[in-house]
Amino acid sequence: MTAQPKDIATYNFAYLDEQTKRMIRRAILKGIAIPGYQVPFASREMPMPYGWGTGGVQVTASIIGPGDVLKVIDQGADDTTNAVSIRAFFKKVANVAVTTDTASATIIQTRHRIPEHPLTAGQVLVYQVPIPEPLRFLEPRETETRKMHALEEYGLMHVKLYEDIAKHGRIATTYAYPVKVEGRYVMDPSPTPKFDNPKMHRSPALQLFGAGREKRIYAVPPFTEVVSLDFEDHPFEVQTFDQPCALCAAENVYLDEVILDDHGGHMFVCSDTDHCEKRRNAPTSPLWGGRAEGAGGGLDQSTPHSTPTPALRADPPHKGEGKEKQ
């Protein structure tokens, strides 16, 4: 009752207290040690709502130091309102340098996209995750899904994908497309479009996933196998666009549809705003055209429309079969 409202707003560097950071770092280390495994952690209330990136913010707050350079994107763009808000939060509570340039960022917090510019060793990509459990919509109970992961019992997921093909002629999952990490855990890549899945495979960057409301952290260490689930006769495919970006003419990048008028007029532009701006400003840069190869923009330089990752057969699943084909 003695609290003076004026005295209340003093916070530690990057908002979280050091005990909390230690607890979260332990969860991150465990996640890195067991790629794709969802580590429960005592998620804190954050000064932004659950579902608005509290998991990602807690992960970023626990790993960020004064020397870091932070980039925050939402839907691939640096200037969407929530990205602006999270970037401003860290500028305020950690006073770190912020950037929109993918290459010069040391930590990139993202919602729904992986940048088009390839990530490099030493960078950390922090994903905001709403529902970390890839099996959740097949089995709502946490007690059950934890058992299924423990027993590596992923038949339900394969049946779901198979039923998609039987009903719709294709796998009707376009984002949050399930992947298998290092041949063991099936993982939700967060609701990124499946176009981005190949970029996770053997990425030199560390990928950390934070789900605040659901209190889970998981990780994909650098150079880890990340294979999108598919069938031999229905290989995984990424989205393709019939036209290039209307602003920078990039091909094989993810595009957003922008409605121009109420007569059905529309155009397609890059979802990654930093990538698009760089191309428009410096058409002679190595980025120009250089990123046109590789569907999904992964490191893998296979031809577009082909399967960028080895097919992991569902029936019967030989362990490591995908790896042999590499």
């Binding site: 839907q75 729904h112 376009t174 479009p193 176009f195 989205q239 549809e257 979802s271």
Partner: peptide, 8 residues
């Protein structure tokens, strides 16, 4: 915004 997933 969810327009990336909505696009997909």
């Amino acid at each position: 915004p969810h327009y990336v997933d909505f696009q997909a």
